[in-house]
Design a protein around this nucleic acid. Sequence first.
DNA 1: AATGAATGAGCGTTCATTCAT
DNA 2: GATGAATGAACGCTCATTCAT
Lengths: 202, 202, 202, 202
Amino acid sequence: MSNGRKKGDHGARRLQIAEATCNVILKAGVERAGIADIAREMGCSTGVLMHYFESKAQMLLYAKNLLFDHVYAAVQAAGAEHSGLEMLHAMAMELVPVDPAAIDRWRVLTAFNGMAIGSPELQKAQASRNARFAKLFSSAIRRLQRAQILPSRLDPFVEGAGIVALVDGIAGQIVMDPRVWPVKRTGELIQRHLHTLLHAPR
Amino acid sequence: MSNGRKKGDHGARRLQIAEATCNVILKAGVERAGIADIAREMGCSTGVLMHYFESKAQMLLYAKNLLFDHVYAAVQAAGAEHSGLEMLHAMAMELVPVDPAAIDRWRVLTAFNGMAIGSPELQKAQASRNARFAKLFSSAIRRLQRAQILPSRLDPFVEGAGIVALVDGIAGQIVMDPRVWPVKRTGELIQRHLHTLLHAPR
Amino acid sequence: MSNGRKKGDHGARRLQIAEATCNVILKAGVERAGIADIAREMGCSTGVLMHYFESKAQMLLYAKNLLFDHVYAAVQAAGAEHSGLEMLHAMAMELVPVDPAAIDRWRVLTAFNGMAIGSPELQKAQASRNARFAKLFSSAIRRLQRAQILPSRLDPFVEGAGIVALVDGIAGQIVMDPRVWPVKRTGELIQRHLHTLLHAPR
Amino acid sequence: MSNGRKKGDHGARRLQIAEATCNVILKAGVERAGIADIAREMGCSTGVLMHYFESKAQMLLYAKNLLFDHVYAAVQAAGAEHSGLEMLHAMAMELVPVDPAAIDRWRVLTAFNGMAIGSPELQKAQASRNARFAKLFSSAIRRLQRAQILPSRLDPFVEGAGIVALVDGIAGQIVMDPRVWPVKRTGELIQRHLHTLLHAPR
DNA sequence: AATGAATGAGCGTTCATTCAT
DNA sequence: GATGAATGAACGCTCATTCAT
C-alpha cells in the first residue's frame, strides 16, 4: 500500500486550476471570470484557489504561460519532425488553430492579449512571447540557410516574425469566425508565403 | 422662438467622451477603465457620461466603432488614390500602424478584441469587422482582375482576408513592441506577399 | 382681446403637476416615481417642476393633500345631501372606492400611507387625516343624536373613528384586489355596521 | 470527516437580518432603508447581507413574510384556544395590535403595503395576504355555522373579509396614533361588529 | 488542507437638485 | 419662464482577499 502521494499534488492542483480558469474565460470572458466562477467550475471553494496562488493576477498569468508553453512545445516538436521548407510549413500549421480545442486555446490567448493593453509589464510579456515564436522560426530558417535551401541574404529573425505575423493574423480571424479559414485554404496561403522566401529579392 | 438652453453639441461631446475613453484604455486597460476614470480624464463628473450614453457598454462600443470607421475610411481613401498592385500596397500600408497615434489606435482595438472573447455578440461584431476589411481588399482585387493585372483564378475574398491577416499580424506585434517592424521592413514584407498574387499556383 | 391671463396659471400648473405625479405613482410606485418620470408624463423638462415646488417632497405632499381634500369634500357633500341614518351610509359609501378612478385615488393614498412609516411628521399628518375623517363622521353622529335617531350614550368620535376604520379596511382590500368587494356587498356590510349604532349596548 | 469551517447558522442569520431590516424601516421608512443602513444596524458589512440574500428585494420580502407568518400563526393559535363567538373575538383581538411590539410589526407591514402600489406582483401578494386572513376567519365562521351558533345564510368568506377589514382599519389608525384605540374600546367595537353576525338580515 | 463567512473598496448607475443659457 | 446639461452623493451589488474554524 504505497500511498506515497502528496508530492506533486501541488503542481497538479495548479494545473487543474489553470484549466478551470481557461474554461471560465472561454464561457464568460476575462473580465467576467471571477474566482468564484473558477471555484464553481472546479467544484471547490474560493479559498482553495488562494492557497495555490498568491492572487488572481498570478492565477491568470500561470494559465496564460501554460497555454503558451503548450503551443510553443507543439510548434517546436513539429519542427523537429520535418526538414526542408516542409519544416517551416509544419511549424506554422501547428501554430494555426485547426480544431476546436486549439481555437479555444487561441481565444484565451486573445483575451490575454487584450488584457496586456494598459499594462506595460504584460505588454512586455506579450512582446517577448512574440519574440520567442519569431526566434523559433528564425532558428529553423537559419538551419535552412545553412543547408542552402533558403538564400543567405534573408534576415532570419525578420522572416520568422513575418511568418508568425501571418499565422497570428489568420488565427485572429479564426478565433472570431472559424468558417473563414478551412485548413486547406490556410495551408495554401502559408505555403505561398513560404515560397516567397525562396526567391526573395535582394 | 423657443427659449431655454442652447442645444449643446451633442455629437461633439460624444466624440470627446470616446476620445477620453480611448486615452484611459491606453493608460489603464479596458478592464480598469471605469467611468470615474473617464470622467476624470475629461475633467467632468461621471453623471455627464450617462447623459450622453445609456451605459458604459454603449460608450465602449461607440469608441470602438469610431476607431474602426476612422481606419476603414483611411484604407478606402488610400485605395482610391492609387491603381495597379500599388493600390493594394497603399491600402495595406494605411492599415498597418506606422506612427504613434496609429499604434495607440490599434492598441485600443486590440483591447476590444480581447474583450470580445466570452461574448458571442462582440465576437460576431469582430468577425464582421474582419469581413468588412477583407471585402475592402477583395473589391480592389476584383478590380485588378478585371484590369487583367491579377489572374482571374484567385478567390478575391480569400486573398483579401489573407492580406488583412498579414497586416493584422504585423500590427499585433507592433502594438506590443513597435521596434520589430520599422516602416521599410513592413513595406517589403507586404510587397513580397502581394507579389505572390501575380504568380499564384493554379 | 383681454389676454388677461397670467394669474392663476401658477396654481393651474401645480395642479397639473400633482395629477402627473399621481399618474406616475400609480404606474411605478412612490419610490420609483422620479422627477424625470413626472416631467416626461407632463411633457416638459424637469426644471419646470422645480420652479413650482421647492423640492420633490413638497410636490408629493401637495399631491397627497389634493387627493385628500378631494375625497374629504366629496364625503362632506354626501353628508349634506342626506339625513337620518342614510346620511352616515351615504358618507361611508362616498369614502369607499367604487369606481376605477376612486380606486386609483386610494392607491396613491395607500402609497403615501406607507411612506409615512419612519417619518414622524408624515405619521402625524396621517393621524390628523384619520382624525379629520373621524370628526366628519362624529359631527354627523352628533347631529343624529340631537335628532334622537341615535342613542346619546354613544361616543360620537369613537363611533366615527369606527366607521372610518371599517371603510378604510374595505378600501385597503379593494386597492389590492377590487373583486373582493362589489358595491352591493360593501353597502350591506356598512349598513349592518351602522345598525349596531342603533342598539348599542349601554 | 469534512474539515473546514462550521456550517454557520444560516437561518438564524437571515432572521437576524430580517429583524434589523424591520428596525431600519421603522426608523427611516422603506424607501430610506438602504442595505448600508441595515448592515450598520446589524453591526456588520454590507457584503454579509448579500451572502444571505440574493438581492435587497428578496431581503425585504423575507422580512415581510416573516412578519406575516408571525401574525398569522398567532391568530390561528388564538382561534384554537377558544370556541363559540368568543373564538372570532379572540382571533380578531390577536390581529389588532395592542402592545408596542405589535404596533411596530403593523407599521412595517403598512410600509410594505405602500410599497406594493405600482408593483403588480407585490399587489397580488398583498391581495393574497388579505385572502389568507379572510380564509382564516371564514373557516372559523363555517365551524360556528356547523355548530349552529351562526346562521347558515351568512357567506363565510365575505364575513371573514369583513372582520379583517374592520381590524385592518383599526390597526391602520393605531399605527399612526395608538391613542385613538385603547384595548377596551377596540374590544367593544369588534364585539359589536361580531354580534351583527348573529342577527344578520336575510 | 480546506472551507465559506466576512470584509470593504469599488463598480455602474440613478436621481434630486443647481444653474448657465 | 423654461430648458436640459451638469453635478455628485447615494444606491444596490460585485468581488478579490482575509481568516477563524
